[in-house]
């Protein structure tokens, strides 16, 4: 059933892809390894779950979850990124990790650390193609993920905001001199990065039908791996990396057993970092924070 495994891998990869794109936005544009992203992923899934449990309509629940993640991202920008721009490079990283720990534990205090079951929003629908079985939730996730990434790449390439963002990524100082309002642009980047992550969290909940306060850790850290494998700061790299990690994970589970997933994924990451630190699609880093 290798074809089925490949399909499952691509579906899982779509979620990693969203998280990896969020990481790559922060590092490519702002040079900031935003380790609060796994927390935002969890906020996406958990807030949706909490509001659905209160009986809200799914669209309101998802919208509120995305808004909550965007709000937290603005806090991260204000408290982690902005004050430490001139400090030692590991300071913003530590501060962002602080946000991750804070978010996780606030949700543990409120909802406990157990797995919570997420209601099935989509009718149980399977699409059969030859011998392949593709779930409705999987299909929706893939469509949403691809749409979001396409929207982002059009935004970056074609619009004025995209031009400003690329200018800041190229050289912050020059962009400021040329009249880019960095003070307004940076929060926008944080918000879009948060929306991507939280959307990934919602899609994860839709697919696996469970959420927990620590759901961000595994997926979020694999998203970092995906970003590096593709090449830091490259959107297409993040997409490729996300798909590769998804495939590697599903194929490892299929052929070697679920216990070896972490060895396979992080071993792959380690080997790649040593052999080709710039990633598959990245250019060698000329400048880096930390």
């Amino acid at each position: 059933m290798i074809a089925q495994q490949l399909v499952n891998g691509v579906m899982l990869g779509a979620i990693y892809m969203l998280v990896a794109v969020a990481f790559t936005l922060a590092i490519g544009i702002l040079n900031f390894l935003n380790f609060s992203i796994p927390g935002l992923f969890m906020v996406g899934g958990m807030v949706t779950w909490a509001l659905l449990a209160q009986g809200w309509h799914w669209s309101i629940a998802v919208g509120a979850a995305l808004l909550a993640a965007a709000f937290v991202a603005l806090l991260v920008e204000r408290l982690s990124y902005r004050p430490s721009r001139d400090a030692d490079p590991e300071v913003p990283l530590a501060s962002a990790l602080g946000f991750l720990i804070l978010l996780e534990n606030l949700f543990v205090i409120r909802y406990g650390s157990d797995q919570l079951s997420f209601p099935a929003l989509l009718p149980d629908f399977n699409w059969r193609l030859g011998g392949l079985v593709i779930g409705g939730a999987q299909l929706v996730s893939l469509a949403v993920a691809v749409a979001l990434v396409l929207w982002l790449s059009v935004l970056l390439r074609r619009t004025n905001t995209g031009r400003r963002i690329r200018a800041v990524a190229e050289s912050r100082e020059t962009a400021v001199i040329l009249g880019v309002d960095v003070g307004r642009l940076v929060p926008q980047v944080f918000v879009s990065s948060a929306v991507f992550t939280a959307a990934g969290g919602v899609l994860f909940a839709l697919n696996y039908l469970q959420v927990s306060a620590t759901m961000g850790e595994g997926v979020g850290f694999k998203g970092v791996a995906a970003m590096i494998i593709g090449g830091m700061g490259s959107i297409w790299g993040a997409i490729l990396g996300g798909l590769l990690i998804g495939l590697a994970e599903v194929l490892t589970i299929g052929f070697l057993g679920a216990d070896l997933v972490d060895i396979a994924v992080y071993g792959l990451l380690l080997a790649l970092l040593i052999l080709r630190p710039e990633g598959l699609l990245g250019r060698p880093a000329a400048r880096e924070k930390l």
Binding site: L33, V224, I263, Y266, I274, A285, L290
Partner: peptide
Amino acid sequence: ILRTHGIYLALATFALGQVITAVFLN
């Protein structure tokens, strides 16, 4: 591992830690 620098080193050690723990777990 020390061929990598800065953020890449931090992430390489991160991956190494994950691999070591996963090995003991199995």
